[in-house]
Every structure is written in C-alpha cells, then in structure tokens.
Design a protein around this nucleic acid. Structure first.
Lengths: 306, 306
DNA sequence: GACCGGCATACCGCCAGGGTATACCGGGAT
DNA sequence: ATCCCGGTATACCCTGGCGGTATGCCGGTC
C-alpha cells in the first residue's frame, strides 16, 4: 500500500528518460536499485508498469505517471504554501478595531500590509473596547487595535499611534469659527463622552486628563453609534476625540485643535502571546514600520498649522 | 524537500487524535519516534506545525493537514486506478471491426464488455480487412475483429463466431419468394463479390468453397460501401454473406438460407501478442464467454426454421 | 555467432526510522 | 509550595530497507 513520492519520482523519471539507465543517472543513483524498486512496486501493485526491452510504459504505467505527476506537483506546492503560511506570507488575521482607529489608522495599516504581504487576508471588525477585550480572550480575534485595553497576563501590546485630543463642537457652537481653542474657552459647555459601560478605562483616562488641567466639566453620555454621532447640534456640547479622527470632515461638527496639549490614550495593538498566527506577527511588523515612517509615535503638536 | 506520504499521515493523525500519544497508538508505533519525525519535519520546513501542551495545529499546520488529506486521498485512488487499469477493469481498447461483424456481433460483444467491465472504454472503427491488418501492425488497433486476417508471427487469434453463408437476392429475383434455396437453384445468376484488393483472402475463400461444390458462377465485383449495397436490384445477381449479416432486414434484398451448408470464414479476434493492453485482454475473455453462451462456435444449420 | 547495450540478479554496507528508557514540563489537587 | 500525573522531548540502541558494486542474462545487430 505505501507507494511513496520517491517511487513516483522514479517511475516518472524512467518514463521521461525512456530507460532505466538514463533515469538512474538523472536520479543520482545506480541502475540496479532502481530496477529493484520498480520490480517490487510492480509486485505490490500486482500490475506491470513498464514493458522492458525496449522500455515503454504499459497502459497501467501511463495511468500511474499521469497521477504521479499531479501528486508530485501538488506536494511541492503544498510545502511552499505551508512555508509561506508559517512565515506570515500567507494566511489570515482576524483583527478587531476600535472605532476611533477604523477610519484612518486601520486602513493605512491594512494598505501597508497588503503591499508587504499580498498573501495575507485580514478579517477586520469594528467593535467597542469591551468586546475587543472579550473577543481577544475568547479567541475570536487574533489581534486587536484599541485604546486602554486592560493589561492582563499573557497579553502583549505594541503602541501604534500617539496623538493629542482635539475638540469637536457643533456648527452652532460659539467657538465654531475659531482656528484653535483652549480648554478654558470651552468652560461652560457640556462634555459628551462615551458611556462607562462601553469603554470604562478610556472614559476615566479622559476624565483624569481633564482633572489634571484643573478644570471641571459637566458630562453627558452620548449614544455611541460611532464617534461622529455626538449630539452636538444644539451648539452647547463638545467632545474630545483623537486628532486623527477629528481630522475627518463631518456634516454637523467642527474640529477645534486644543492649545492645551492633551494626549489621547495610546492606540495599541494587543494580542495573546500564545495565540498569534504568523500572519498576525507580520501585521505587527508592518504596523511598527508604518508607525515609524509616519511619525505616529511622537506626539504631534495640537496647534493650527503655522 | 522530501516530505513523503508517511509524514503526511503522521501529521494528519496527530491532528485528528489531538495528541502525539494517541496518534502513535493509531499508527502502531511508539510516541518518541513520532515526536522526532515531527520535530525534524518542522525543522526542514522551517515552520512549526503544532503548538505543544496542549497539542494544537498552528496555522501552518492547518494548511499542511488540509493539503495532506487531499494528497493522501489522491494517492489511494491513484493506486486503485492503476490496479484497475492493469487488470483490464479500466482503460481503453482500440478495436477494428470488419463490416460483416459491425452490425450484430460487435455490438453484442460491446454490450457484454460494458456489463462486465464498466470502466473500459472502446474506440471501435469499422474497416475492411486490409486496413485491419495494416492498422494492427502499425499499432493503430489494439484488437481486430475480422475474417481471414493473414496469419503472421506475433499475432494471436481467437475464433469468435462460426456461421454458414446465406444468399441474398434482389426482390426482383426469381427465387425471391422461396423459404430456402440450394446453390444449384442459383445457377445462372451472377455472384456479386467483394473486390480482390479489399479482402483478397476472404474472396478466395468464398471462391474455393464454391469450387468444392462443383458449380461455377460468373463473378461481378460489387461496390463495397458496406455489405448491403450489392447491386441486386436488377434481379439477376446474388451475394453470399454470413448468416448473421443476412438476418438483417434490408430494403432491396431478400435473404435465402442455403440448403448446402457452406461455412463462412471464421470471425476471429486478432491481436499482437506483445501489444495487448489489459483492457484488450478483458475483451478477449468477454468475447470467449459470449461466444460460448450464444453457441456461436458450433456451425448453425442453414435451413429454414422447422 | 560474437559483440554490445541495457535490464535483472546477488550480495553487501549503511543509515534512516522505529523501539526502549527516561527526563522534562505544565497543570491541577492537596 | 509540593506532589502527582498526563503528555511530550531527549538519549541511545537496533533493525530493515535502500542504495552501491559486481556480474549475469537477454535481445538486437553486424
């Protein structure tokens, strides 16, 4: 039963060379062992593969060679595929992305990955922080791009982007025309913030940063159907978002760079150290290179362009 | 490079059993060599296939197993196909058939072959004797069904059907209504016969048989666009054909069994002893069985049904 | 019939692959 | 923490299969 690939190579080579001697030369071996292998193979199959003198394939031999050629080619391409998969040049990454990165940062990373590793496919899903964390632990995500993902044992993280917060106000807001604002200018407006059950750590980080400025704001929870739906139409509230998100044009909001250099929580890639597929490792490498190229790791100035 | 089927079986089994120990049991071997084989394989590939403790496939391992399953299945079905081909249960026969057998005998043989060896395909071609002989020598036919094929060294033959000659006359012939005729009744009619350059041995065999009866007939060559086109419409000629062919209904001819038991040349299967594909051998076995079942080998009586 | 090209047979040596014994590692229970 | 235990890795040995060399055998050719 065990007809291994070596024997298939033998038969195919004999067929191609039209004789045992020339085949043996091409196979870098002597002719007698080759003859013996074929004889034993024919015995095991119960079927002659070659006519001898002159050496010609039997009909069964033709069938053998045809199948063997396919098998050998398949075996070769298989080890190529396995190698590529193992080195992250092929395969799949399931990526979870926080909303504030889904519009600018994640697409740039994916484009860079596509350029460097065309064989890798990414299944990206947008989710709020709690689901990112849970999905990571449950194995639904290989890799997560988020802010303030809880630190747990077994999780590895890599900072991808460090950026300041900017303010967003409705077009009806008194400050809507300004090129830049200080936090103190916003005093009296209500701060619209993501609810605590969605991203508790993120929320408390923002509040802590504000507390350090010495200013106190009243806070409204906003519906979190994406960062752009902040309920600012009444002109009385404002939101604080990472600058890359604030840079996106919006229908009902105006972005105000902050004179106070208030850092947003770092955008990080997080993964389970013991469950990162090779393509995921490739992703982290690409992310690191991209972050460096774009200067995402030095906090950018908040002010308006000079 | 040499990743043989044995290693593939190992990896697949470990994946299926979920561990090295159980896999080793199913493979009827000890666990340590299995571990070593996998380790060496992983080294050669440069890629780990399993996470250990607990034993789980890596992404590369998944790719390996998927490909390996296909390859193993293909290898199995391949040896089945080769065996079947070698034993004549599969494959192709190129059959050359003389016209006088193409209408009744050959179809029956093909039906029997189809029943016994459904995997065999037959490429049947109708041809006159000279082309049958030449095609056999040139390797265009594996097997030939004909009459009076020249005996040559290296050719093997097997009689398939032995039958009497019957007369065919035009509907306008004086004997057209008779249930049976003697050769002496036909005296004065012209014998229409296949030309000598088409089937010389067949022609001379007929003439010799007639000579033995003591009667002499005048002979016309007929156009040999098949046996039914004998040019009998004028009511003056007659032809002699094997009874199985005479039994076919025809528009312009009437069959007359002969009271004289005149044997037609035997219908034989002929092949080159050194170039009979396995499926051809199967054909000869089927032909022998069929001939025996139908009683084709005892010369049938010539007279009308009692 | 003598020669020659090419496959088969006989016999030998080596190493890959499998066996046994045992160490190691991680997880769970006490 | 410690011990135990299931499960894998390591170390070492041994055998059988595979390839090597020498030579026989067969068929085709002159």
């Amino acid at each position: 039963m065990p007809v291994d690939l070596r024997l298939m190579r033998y038969v195919v080579t004999i067929a191609e060379e039209g004789g045992f001697q020339r085949a043996a030369e091409r196979l870098r071996m002597a002719q007698p062992p080759l003859s013996r292998q074929i004889r034993d193979l024919e015995r095991r199959l119960g079927v002659p593969l070659f006519h001898r003198r002159p050496t010609r394939l039997t009909e069964a031999g033709e069938a053998f060679v045809a199948s063997a050629r396919r098998l050998l080619a398949d075996a070769d391409s298989m080890i190529e595929l396995v190698r590529a998969t193992g080195q992250g040049q092929s395969g799949t990454v399931r990526l979870g992305t926080v909303m504030s990165a889904a519009h600018e940062t994640a697409p740039e990373l994916l484009a860079a990955l596509r350029a460097a590793y065309p064989g890798v496919t990414v299944q990206a899903r947008e989710a709020w922080s709690g689901e990112l964390d849970a999905g990571l632990r449950a194995g639904r995500f290989d890799l997560v791009l988020g802010r303030m993902i809880p630190r747990r044992p077994g999780l590895t993280r890599q900072t991808v982007r460090r950026e300041p917060l900017v303010a967003v106000v409705g077009t009806a807001h008194p400050l809507a025309g300004r090129p830049v604002a200080a936090l103190s200018d916003l005093y009296g407006s209500r701060l619209r913030l993501v609810p605590g059950d969605v991203a508790p750590d993120y929320r408390s980080a923002i509040l802590a940063a504000l507390a350090r400025t010495g200013l106190e704001f009243e806070v409204d929870d906003c519906e979190v159907l994406g960062w752009r739906h902040l309920g600012l139409a009444d002109g009385k509230g404002f939101a604080l978002v990472p600058s890359s998100l604030g840079a996106l044009p919006t229908a009902d909001g105006v972005t105000l760079p902050l004179a106070d250099h208030l850092p947003a929580p770092d955008l990080e890639l997080v993964w389970r150290r013991d469950a990162l597929p090779p393509a995921g490792a490739a992703f982290t490498r690409v992310a690191e290179a991209t972050a460096r190229e774009r200067g995402w790791l030095e906090a950018a100035p908040t002010g308006p362009p000079a």
